[in-house]
Design a protein around this nucleic acid. Sequence first.
DNA 1: TTCATTTTTCAATGATTATTGAAATGATAA
DNA 2: TTATCATTTCAATAATCATTGAAAAATGAA
Lengths: 105, 105
Amino acid sequence: MKIDTAVSLLGALAQGSRLALFRLLVQQGPDGMAAGEIAERLGIAPNALSFHLKELSRVGLLKSRQEGRFIYYAPDFKVMGGLVAYLTENCCAGSKAADPCCPPR
Amino acid sequence: MKIDTAVSLLGALAQGSRLALFRLLVQQGPDGMAAGEIAERLGIAPNALSFHLKELSRVGLLKSRQEGRFIYYAPDFKVMGGLVAYLTENCCAGSKAADPCCPPR
DNA sequence: TTCATTTTTCAATGATTATTGAAATGATAA
DNA sequence: TTATCATTTCAATAATCATTGAAAAATGAA
């Protein structure tokens, strides 16, 4: 992963509503959750939520599918996995311990 | 870790110069590197670097110590480890696989 | 078609953030 | 002391981002 990609992904998650949103969708699993229900659960206005969904989708952290009038959003676990792997390798000296970060060598 | 803490840490790393800076210091290890050398290596103006060092220190990702005229900065590996653990638990459904993110259950 | 529902888009505002150049601080050496 | 080096602070500008309210698409139901 290029550093610019990591910066984009980190930036997308570095916001309270978006991190809460992503956590919720991770809990929900690959089937996803409709935008309206997400907005209700998080107490965010639908248009504000749409802004954040777009932001997370733009960087690739969310996938969506339409079903009738509803649009379901779900995490792309591969992308998130790539970010965690990047952080572990580049910002944790590649540690594989239970405590994931330690000095190099 | 509280979600607000995670947001702060993510925000501190969600910037090109700062992520490059943190990576460099992780490579360098716990002895750290003087501000001047960091600026030279990254090609950042000293005052701009100071701004970013302050930002990373503010959220706890860096520790510093003075030695003569030099100030050495080093990562706080525990804090970074806490962030990676938070992301793994909350945003990767707690997966412990080689590919760190997968759907829950 | 007409209506209600779901979601997105748009424009405006305010808030936060990064960058630049200049000046100031703090520490050591002459 | 004075001078030099390393780093930080300050002020100004520009850029980016989040929030709000209103309107517009898109889908399906009556």
